[in-house]
Structure formats: structure tokens, C-alpha cells
């Protein structure tokens, strides 16, 4: 089974970089059995990033104003209100794109989980995140990894039985 973690963001837009930073952190760990990708695209172009895996875990920034910056919110794609990247400005939102792609028989994951990290500034150009969001990188990465391992474990348990 192929499990993929997609860290989505723009590295030069302050806190919007969080997804990319989580992916970078995980890449350094050389984890076996989980593919890590840094993704800077959005909307329908994300389909290519989903192609060919069974389980996808998306890490992206979000502004809900209901959580403290740096909070990690786990949700499914259907529960996802809108993050900057998952709702492309110019084309279909990811959910519609995935429905369309599934209808035409594209090889897409059975399950997509989303880890959204509440951010405070994703409107200023610059490198570096705000301190609260920066602190969330490690815990978000660990959370993503635990989701990935839980999926892998389900399969190995089945195989064992």
C-alpha cells in the first residue's frame, strides 16, 4: 500500500509555508514506506500529486479564526471549509476535481485525510513563519506520520490475519 504525505504551501508567504516546512522536516527523517512531497500548486493541478497512491495525507494552512495559531485540526476532505491551496483560485476545488477524476477512472487514493494548521499571517511576503506556527511544525509532522503509520498498520494487521 502506498501512503503519501503532501505538504502544501508557498514558501515565500510567511505562515503559508507551514505545509512545505512539515514536508521538509519529514524528508530529513528518511522514513521508509511513506512518500513525502512538497507541493506548491493548488486546485485541479493537485490531482497529479494524488495520482498513484492509496492513502493521501494533506498538510496545509488554514485561517478559521476559531483556533489559536499553531493549532492542528484534523478533518476529512468533505469537512474542509477552504484553505488557500485546496480551493484553487482559477479552477475546480479539490473535492470536485477528485470526483471528476474518479468518474473517469483516474488512479486516485481511497482515502484523503487533511491536517490543517491554523495560521495568523498568510498575506505577507517573506521567509519565516510567526513563532506560534513555527512551533507547530514538529507536532504537525508527527501527527501526519502517526496517521500514515496507522494506515500502514491496518494493512499489516489484515495481512497477519
Amino acid at each position: 500500500m502506498k501512503v503519501r504525505i503532501l505538504g502544501i504551501g508557498n514558501p515565500i508567504l510567511k505562515d503559508d509555508a507551514i505545509g512545505i516546512e512539515v514536508a521538509k522536516y519529514l524528508e530529513c527523517k528518511n522514513i521508509v514506506g511513506v512518500e513525502i512531497r512538497e507541493v506548491e500548486s493548488g486546485g485541479m493541478d493537485l490531482l497529479e500529486e494524488f495520482r498513484g497512491c492509496d492513502i493521501a495525507i494533506v498538510v496545509d494552512s488554514i485561517v478559521t479564526c476559531n483556533h489559536e495559531p499553531g493549532s492542528i485540526i484534523e478533518m476529512t476532505l468533505n469537512e474542509l471549509p477552504f484553505t488557500r491551496r485546496l480551493r484553487g483560485a482559477h479552477d475546480a476545488d479539490l473535492n470536485s476535481a477528485l470526483h471528476l477524476a474518479k468518474a473517469i477512472g483516474m488512479d486516485l487514493p481511497e482515502k484523503v485525510s487533511v491536517l490543517a494548521i491554523e495560521v495568523s499571517d498568510n498575506s505577507t511576503f517573506g521567509y519565516g513563519m510567526t513563532p506560534e506556527v513555527e512551533k507547530a511544525v514538529v507536532s504537525a509532522a508527527e501527527k501526519a506520520l502517526s496517521l500514515a503509520f496507522a494506515e500502514l498498520k491496518k494493512v499489516s494487521d489484515q495481512d497477519w490475519r
Binding site: 515565500i12 506548491e40 493548488g42 505577507t124 511576503f125 517573506g126
Partner: peptide
Amino acid sequence: VPELRGFEVFCKGRPVEEMPQITARLCGV
């Protein structure tokens, strides 16, 4: 429309040859 802040400040002081990569990140579209 809302404002994205600080692009000019971000660019000033950088080598001009970095601009094709930086400005491509201005817009995912």
C-alpha cells in the same frame, strides 16, 4: 480585493536573477 503585503520590500536587496523564481511564486495560477 484584499491586499497582499510587502512584495516590493521582500524583493529589494535581492539579486535580480532570483526574480524569475520568486515572481513565479506570486501566483499559483
